[in-house]
Write a protein that binds this DNA or RNA. Structure first.
Lengths: 195, 195
DNA sequence: GCTAGACTATGACGGCCGTTATAGCCAGTG
DNA sequence: CACTGGCTATAACGGCCGTCATAGTCTAGC
């Protein structure tokens, strides 16, 4: 019992992240999110008074923090270890869900915002990408990469992994992840001057 | 008048591709697709008797063929030229739509399929990715890359570009595309032994 | 025990969804 | 001219949507 059982609020956020990662934001209804978390519909508007946007925003941040935690931990062993952890994390999600789930941050990123304002969830998605890139770029710099090279490579890694996960879902195969992993691993090893 | 004015059917397919690339499949209604193409709702079910799935499938194939055409043409000048054309094509879409549209193939790829079958549109998305990868890989092999290296690199390029486009939308900036472009260009030049 | 405040239960609101059915128009062929 | 077949127009079907309102239940602190 080192971990307290999650509150209803936490269950809703985690469940929302899962459902958004499967169907996208617009296609996920608040009723389904509530049911998925075994919470009453009224509770979602109690915990998230700003409605769907707030819930989506928290789901994005929840996923962002979860991945960043894993990334931070594994990057202690170097950029290649971090990359492999990043890849394995997404590979696990894709395989465990039989190619039905992906990344909720990506899902939120590709929904058209209204003309007049930028939704909070989209801003959160941008921040999450920025955080992941920052972690990778920092580790690359620490291991000898030039700052600009590190920034470019970090962006490439995040983008490639996100895109690869989507391709794996379409093809119902992990082969794209295998190929991307090999290329990125070699690229990082070169960038940090491993020989 | 070298090009005949598009038929209503073509307008619907092209419009559907555009709308799916903005909002995702589930969030795009048939009524809106019809209105966007200035076609009556009844016509969509006349031209596409199998409904939304058929329309989505044709939209994916339409985009796939359009991109493949551009890719084939530019790859004649070598893999780097092909990469730059691929990047510029998506950059144009993202910029021209003020970061509101992306790739409809990616959008279709990240929608959860029903438990019992795989939707036609998802199969089409997998085929389109395969086609783009094949074109790139073929050009890389022709310019001296090892077959396995070519296949891996082609997958990385497609995945990275798709992911980068999504990141650009979230950040409302083309900087991710600039970074990814630089990294991929260098990578391809190395792979084909340019010096 | 009592009360305040956190949470739940329930139902309603207008609105859009995918799909189907049916009747009408209107070109082109004979 | 009639008429056929491609296309349109219109309405309807059941169903789910996001959101809000209201009344009920439960628990913690006095």
């Amino acid at each position: 019992m080192s971990k307290p059982s999650p509150t209803a609020r936490e269950r809703i956020v985690a469940g929302a992240a899962d459902m958004i990662s499967r169907r996208g934001l617009n296609a996920t209804s608040i009723r389904e999110m509530a049911k998925h978390a075994k919470a009453p519909l009224g509770s979602t508007y109690h915990y998230f008074p700003d409605g769907k946007q707030q819930l989506a925003t928290e789901a994005v941040r929840f996923t962002g923090a979860w991945v960043a935690r894993s990334l931070r931990k594994e990057l202690a062993a170097g950029p290649v270890a971090g990359l492999l952890a990043f890849l394995d994390l997404w590979r696990g999600i894709v395989v465990d869900t039989d190619f039905r789930a992906g990344c909720p941050v990506l899902a939120v990123s590709i929904e058209e915002p209204p003309v007049d304002e930028t939704p909070a969830a989209l801003l959160a998605a941008a921040e999450v990408f920025e955080e992941w890139e920052g972690l990778l770029a920092g580790s690359l710099r620490e291991h000898g990469a030039e700052p600009e090279q590190a920034a470019q490579l970090a962006t490439l890694v995040v983008a490639a992994v996100e895109g690869t996960v989507a391709m794996c879902r379409a093809k119902r195969s992990t082969e794209p992840l295998d190929r991307t992993a090999e290329q990125l691993r070699a690229l990082i090893e070169t960038a940090i001057g491993k020989r």
